[in-house]
């Protein structure tokens, strides 16, 4: 009797789990505020994903030249840039070109060139100063922005490429900008990237799509610098566990072979 029952029980449990999974992954965002995000093929998605080093380096160039004027990256250090393929000397040079707050020998506030071990320089000394310089809006820290938004890299890409003229009849508040993917469509950030905003060092075509793709790759790296190590370890762990599962199942079969149950 148990033999016939088991499949239904397990089947129902699987359906239950699937339902639960669907409910968990379903975006809680309201339908009227969430147009479908662009679906970009990211080098770092999937279990074998890695960061496209060239794209991440171009992305850093964009952060450095554009985003960093308003957005901090407070959790990251300059030394983290080694993770996108820069040499230690390049990292030191980049850090040395930034000046960070320090104290002189008399205890007075001063500035010194940054070291590789320093956090990324913040564009504003505090949130109040950031708001004052941005018409009241606070540019969010970008350290984990890719993980902090529903939709992740696709959402950030959508925001960067989603600036369009407001539809006829849309009342745009003064000082705000229309964005297809932003909740409520009114975003304080003016359009940061356009075709040709940066001139890439490596000569890559600087279309807005390319620029958005590259800076999102960089920001994804900054949000999850452990991703490649995590994926590599995960593949080993899963393979090992598959082997161990097979082995333990074989032992179980042999042990239970003579038990009537």
């Amino acid at each position: 009797m148990m033999r016939t029952l088991r499949p239904t029980f397990i089947g129902a449990a699987l359906v239950g789990a699937a339902l639960l999974g669907a409910s968990v992954t379903a975006a809680p965002a309201r339908a009227e505020e969430a147009p479908e995000l662009p679906s970009v093929n990211w080098s770092f998605s999937g279990p074998f994903g890695t960061y496209d080093r060239a794209a991440a380096q171009r992305g850093f160039q964009i952060y450095n030249e554009v985003c960093s004027n308003c957005h901090s990256l407070k959790e990251a250090y300059y030394r983290d840039l080694i993770g996108i393929g820069l040499s230690m000397q390049q990292v030191k040079d980049i850090a040395a070109s930034k000046r960070v707050p320090a104290l002189d020998e008399n205890g007075q506030p001063t500035e010194r060139p940054a070291l590789a071990s320093d956090h990324f320089r913040a564009p504003f000394p505090n949130d109040l100063a950031a708001r004052a310089a941005n018409g009241g809006g606070l540019p969010p820290d970008l350290s984990v922005i890719v993980k902090a938004r529903e939709g992740g890299p696709d959402y950030i890409y959508g925001i960067l490429t989603g600036f369009v003229d407001p539809p006829a009849g849309f009342h745009l508040m003064p000082g705000l900008n229309y964005n297809t993917y932003f909740a409520g469509h009114q975003i304080a950030m003016p359009q940061p990237l356009r075709d040709g905003t940066v001139t890439y060092i490596d000569g890559t075509n600087n279309s807005i799509d390319q620029e958005a793709h590259d800076v999102v790759t960089f920001l994804s790296f900054i949000a999850s610098p452990e991703l490649e190590e995590r994926h590599r370890m995960g593949i080993k762990v899963v393979l090992f566990l598959l082997f161990l599962t097979g082995l333990s199942y074989a032992v179980k079969r042999k042990l239970w072979a003579n038990v009537h149950h």
Binding site: A148, R230, H231, G234, V237, L241, T245, S248, V251, L255
Partner: peptide
């Protein structure tokens, strides 16, 4: 031994979550 088989499968699911979808069940 029977529980070991189940534990291996449990760790398999756990590992896939931790290594490949660590933020799936969290809130952004």
């Amino acid at each position: 031994v029977k529980d070991s088989v189940a534990l291996c499968l449990f760790f398999l699911v756990f590992a896939v979550l931790v290594f490949f979808f660590p933020d799936l069940l969290g809130h952004s």
